[in-house]
Each structure stands twice: as structure tokens, then as C-alpha cells.
Design a protein around this nucleic acid. Structure first.
Lengths: 218, 218
DNA sequence: GCAAAAGTGTTACTAGTACACCCATGC
DNA sequence: GCATGGGTGTACTAGTAACACTTTTGC
């Protein structure tokens, strides 16, 4: 089995929701190529690790825990996707409740930031394409399963939930029907508290029930 | 960028339907390791080709045309999946109407065969795992889209269609409801001919309509 | 004429959609 | 007291599920 010059790297799309806005975690590159551009977290695959290990280690380094829902998305192999050589990237999506993660900025000495997916900065390599692919997967997951719980903190309002849904799906939903459907699914429960701040009537706060498992909604 | 010993290969799950039975195309290995075992078609990725090119070229070599619906499934990276070294495999599913493909046995000088997915032979490497993963993807695709048309010849019966559905989904459906649903979807039309052979009343033959595009059913 | 498999219609139920008014808060 | 956004119920529609008998062919 001959040596070759093909490198494989990972690229993780870490998503969270903050105040009903879907966000993704990006790192600013401080070396060429694409110096100053923003990139998805990732690492070259080493010979003695699996993709899953690579991703879990990286997630731990980035956000302090391996306990993050993640899933493989796609392997990108365009010849010119990396000007430094032949590098393939296997992308993952990771979903996290923003409240529990602590971005380890000190150790990493990197500029790391959550971006609203509707206002993305200049992105390095083909990372915009990778991110768009990831959003499509997220859409599919949202339609078919209850992965949503991984994205939400323990206090959220139904309008926030609906807002995320509408954003990701790019559709407009009726408030009453959305409530009815979601509450009937039995995945969430009231915390007993209300939202504070903002104008208008305060919304009830909800949380996902404990121990609900990943299921197909259809 | 340093050299490394990681090899990437493809593994294609080519599916078809014959008389209402879902089948997969396998090749018997005539070299060690796993000599005599059956494997999924695949090739090492070369430095100057993309995964898509690799897969399309292989499909052309195997079945004489690149015009086959295919889609990437998953990249497998277990450390010991190949005893010859560190080899990752990116798997694809390909769906084909059995009637139009001509397995190029002469040129390939290989033992190639369609297997009913319910009666698989001993499989090399982790190819059984890869195939099972592919079947899951196929299931999802079948629920959500009309990819089914790529699997079916231009003459099939509704009971055959239902049979494939039931097999892949592992469920039992009511004949009348299945007919109603499928005919109402407007994807298929009668050819005007009847099935021949077999006992009992002959079934009407159907074909998928021309120019129906890949859509989400839900 | 009988065994085998295909074709057909109606009713009940369930899920989804459409839609308008009242309520709690901040200023 | 008014602007803002949140909460609620009902009627209609469409899709799904349950269910049994008749038809066409081969032997």
C-alpha cells in the first residue's frame, strides 16, 4: 500500500440558539491562506484516530466537554478546495445548548465567535459551502426528529422556538397551530416562570422534558 | 504539509429491484485478504480526482453508464477496518433500473452478482456494516422523496412496488390504501399492459411518468 | 371448479389548516 | 391608555387507517 499526498481533515459546524436566533461558531484565521477570514473548527486526521475521535477531541478542546450531540454530514473532495494541497474535509454538525458551553479562548488563543447564520462574515476555503450543506442537514433533522432539544437552553419561549423553526425551514407558521403541535408532541413542559424584558406580554418559559430520546417525528 | 499513510477509498452500494425484490451488486474477492468473500465495488481515491469522479468512473466501468442516480452516504474511519493499513472508506448509494444496466463481466474478469438483501453472503471488511448504513439511508430517502423511480424498470406492478416498500421499511401495508396513496401522488401511470406468468390474476403494469423530478413527499 | 393473487369503495378517525379576539406588560 | 407581543378555541379539510368481497387467470 503506497504512500500518498491526500490529507483528510474535519470541519465542524457547531450550532446553538440564543434568544431564538440560530448561531454557528467560527474561528478567525491568523495565518495564510485566508488570513483574517473566518473558518469552521477542524483538525487534520491523524493516522491513529478515527473521525469520531478527532471530532470529539476537538469539541472538548473548543467548548470544554465531549457531551455534545454530533453527527457526520458530508465529505468534500473538490480538487482545489485547499490551495495548500490535496485536502479532503469530512464535515460534522454539532448541536449545543449555549448556556452550558464555555469557549476556551485562553487556552486556544484564538478569536472565536458565534455568528447569526443570516449575517455571516467572509469565510475561508469552501467553508461557506460546507456550512450551507450542514444547514440543509439540520433542516432535515428538524423535520424528522426532535434534535431541537440539543440546541435549546432550559429556558426558552415558544415564540423563540417557532422563530428558529421558521428561520431554518424558511417558512412562516401560524402561532396557534405551532403551539398546539409542539405541546401535543409532549416534548416540552412549562418551567412555571415567565420571560422578562422585551415589550409586550411576557412569554411563558419552557424546557425540554428530561430523558426524552431521539425519535423520528414521522 | 506532510505526507501520511492514510488511504481513502470509495465503496458503492448499487441497488436495484427485480420482481419486487431489493438487490445489491457485490463482487467476489479473488485476492487476500478476505479471499472468496464478497465486497462492495470501490476504488482507492487518486490524488487528481474527486470522490464524485471516482464513483462515476467506477459506475461506468461496472454497469456501462454514468447516468445512475447516486448519493454520498457516510465516511467510515475505524482504525482496524482494513488489515492492510489505514484505509478510510466513503460510501455511496447508487440506484438503478435493472433493465438498462449491462454488467461488464468480460472486461472486469470478476465474479459479480446481484444479491437479495435478505440473503447476503459472507462479506469482506466492514462492508456489511457499510451496507446496513446504506439501507438506512435508502429507507429515509424512500420515506421522504420519490427516489423510488430510479430503482424500478419501466414495467412493474403495484404489488411489486408495495413489496419493496414493505421490505425496506419492514412494515406491512394495506393493499387498497397503498394503491390509493400511490396513484393519487400522480407519479406513476398504467402502461396498458398486464403482467404475464405467475399464478392468480395478472397485475396491471405501471411505469413512472416521464420528467418527474426529485421532490420531497412531505 | 378451485386455488392464487389482483382489483375495488366506504366509513371512521386523526392530523393539519385557517382564522380573530383577548391578555399582560412597559412606557 | 396605547403599543407591543403572547396566549387561546373552533370549524373545516385532507390524509390515513380499517375493513371484505369480487375478478381474472392457470391448472
Amino acid at each position: 500500500m503506497s504512500k500518498n499526498n491526500i490529507i483528510l481533515e474535519t470541519a465542524i459546524n457547531i450550532f446553538t440558539v440564543e434568544k431564538g436566533i440560530l448561531k454557528v461558531l467560527l474561528i478567525r484565521k491568523n495565518t495564510e491562506p485566508y488570513k483574517g477570514y473566518w473558518s469552521l473548527p477542524g483538525n487534520n486526521l491523524r493516522e491513529n484516530e478515527t473521525l469520531e475521535q478527532n471530532v470529539n477531541d476537538l469539541l472538548e478542546k473548543m467548548v470544554g466537554t465531549k457531551e455534545i450531540y454530533n453527527e457526520q454530514d458530508y465529505t468534500f473532495s473538490k480538487l482545489d478546495r485547499n490551495p495548500s494541497g490535496r485536502v479532503l474535509a469530512t464535515s460534522y454538525i454539532a448541536l449545543t445548548d449555549n448556556n452550558i458551553i464555555q469557549i476556551n479562548r485562553e487556552e486556544n488563543q484564538l478569536e472565536i465567535q458565534w455568528f447569526d447564520i443570516n449575517t455571516l462574515p467572509k469565510m475561508a476555503y469552501d467553508h461557506k459551502e460546507i456550512l450551507e450543506h450542514a444547514q440543509e442537514l439540520l433542516k432535515t433533522k428538524l423535520i424528522n426528529t426532535n434534535v431541537l432539544k440539543n440546541l435549546f437552553p432550559s429556558d426558552f419561549t415558544l415564540p423563540e422556538l417557532q422563530n428558529v423553526y421558521e428561520n431554518i425551514m424558511n417558512i412562516k407558521l401560524d402561532r396557534r397551530n405551532f403551539r398546539k403541535k409542539f405541546i401535543n408532541l409532549g416534548l416540552i413542559e412549562e418551567t412555571g416562570y415567565n420571560n422578562v424584558g422585551g415589550s409586550g406580554r411576557p412569554a411563558k418559559l419552557y424546557k425540554f422534558k428530561e430523558n426524552i430520546k431521539e425519535v423520528n417525528l414521522f
